[in-house]
């Protein structure tokens, strides 16, 4: 019998360059990845108004009317103010530390109404909204620090503590439709 005996070559693929290929791909994806976080001011729109149902009456003292025109001039309850004073005035209105007759009865009754013109640039509107949010943030932080010793943002999400502070200072912001 003629048995051919041959030394078999090992059937291996040379894998030493695999790491290089993987590194190349890795670097490509590293460079192209953008881990961008979306940030912004969160709001909840009210449901559409039913024309047959009368809106509930709101007492004048609980309502803070903020009007902003296209030039960025601000009226708060018929008084012209500069944008730097908006926050302090809002905090005074919402908190009402001296129990003034003109200002909100209690923080959870306070409603901030923001009204602009159709021509108002978007950045002016956002600046105003930012001031309102900043007033609420300060109030919530102060309440949270007084009760729990930490800032509001550091309370656990949806914890009873956070809910309590939220109930103390609910964000009641109404975005009114422009007239013209």
């Amino acid at each position: 019998m003629l048995l051919k005996k041959r030394e078999r070559e090992g059937a291996e693929i040379n894998g030493s360059s695999m790491a290089d290929i993987a590194f190349l791909l890795l670097i490509f994806f590293l460079v192209t990845t953008t881990i961008n976080v979306d940030t912004g001011i969160g709001m909840v729109l009210p449901p559409p108004l039913d024309p047959e149902v009368e809106p509930p009456p709101i007492r004048e003292r609980n309502l803070m009317n903020i009007l902003v025109n296209a030039q960025g001039l601000i009226l708060m309850d018929e008084q012209p103010v500069s944008i730097n004073d908006v926050k302090d005035k809002l905090i005074e209105f919402i908190d009402n530390p001296n129990n003034s007759e003109e200002l909100s009865i209690s923080p959870d009754a306070a409603i901030v109404s923001l009204k602009t013109q159709r021509e108002t640039p978007y950045n002016i509107y956002i600046d105003m909204l930012d001031e309102v949010m900043s007033a609420y943030k300060d109030l919530r932080d102060a309440a949270s620090r007084a009760n729990y010793g930490v800032e509001y943002a550091r309370l656990a999400e949806n914890s009873p503590q956070q809910e309590q502070i939220k109930d103390m200072y609910p964000k009641k912001i109404s975005i009114a439709e422009p007239d013209n």
């Binding site: 001011i41 969160g42 709001m43 729109l45 956002i126 930012d130």
Partner: peptide
């Protein structure tokens, strides 16, 4: 009925 909005800002 999409009530949750977010004004995207930097």
């Amino acid at each position: 009925g999409t009530f949750r909005i977010n004004y995207s800002t930097k």
